[in-house]
Computed example of a mutant assay.
Amino acid sequence: MRIPPLYRRPAWQRFFAGMAIGGAISWCIFLYIYGVWQEENTELLRKQQQEIVDLNNEKKIWQEEYKEMNKRNIEQLTVQKINIKILNAEKYKLDSLSVLETEDSVRDDIDMMLAKDLETVYKSKDLLKKIIENKPIKINDKRYKLKVNELVIFTNLTIQLEIQFE
């Protein structure tokens, strides 16, 4: 079997040469288009990865800030401190040590309200008043009783008292 002598005909030679050149050109065009496409996708992936990193960092910052705000809100919604003030101690000529001891005694009696939420303290305000008013105080061999003049319930529980003879 023999190969036909097509190499002698210029039309066939041009056809095969055109096929070879066309194949090479189409291969170059394919590589160029595929390279450009890969480059665009690579750049898009880089941008998206950077955006993901930025968003994760931002999310962490927001989460930390959210946790910090929750801690502050929890602190703000509980009783942090109890302030007690006796208003009319001068009327009975009581020394400041006796007044301070009386205030500390009352503070010790209602210490259970520390770190309680404001709603619980508000619901038990009548109990607080009864605890304070029903306790007799003995100062300089005289018996006194306390009367709640003002009760302010917030993060600082403020109680203003008046002292009276029993």
Rank of each mutant, 00 (worst) to 15 (best):
M1L: 07
I3M: 10
P5N: 15
L6S: 13
Q13R: 03
R14C: 03
G22Q: 06
G23R: 03
A24S: 08
I25M: 15
I29S: 15
Y32D: 10
W37S: 15
Q38M: 11
L44W: 10
R46N: 13
Q49R: 11
Q49I: 13
Q50K: 11
E51Q: 15
V53G: 05
N57I: 01
K59C: 07
K59A: 14
E64I: 01
E65R: 11
Y66C: 13
K67C: 06
E75M: 14
L77D: 07
Q80H: 06
K81P: 00
K81D: 05
K85M: 12
I86P: 00
I86F: 03
E90W: 01
D95Y: 07
D95E: 11
S96E: 10
E101R: 02
T102S: 04
T102M: 02
S105A: 13
V106A: 06
K116L: 05
D117S: 09
Y122D: 14
K125E: 11
K129E: 02
K129P: 00
I131G: 10
I132S: 03
P136C: 04
P136W: 01
I137M: 10
I139H: 01
K145Q: 07
V148G: 02
V148P: 00
L151Y: 06
T155E: 07
L157G: 03
T158K: 13
E162C: 04
E166K: 01
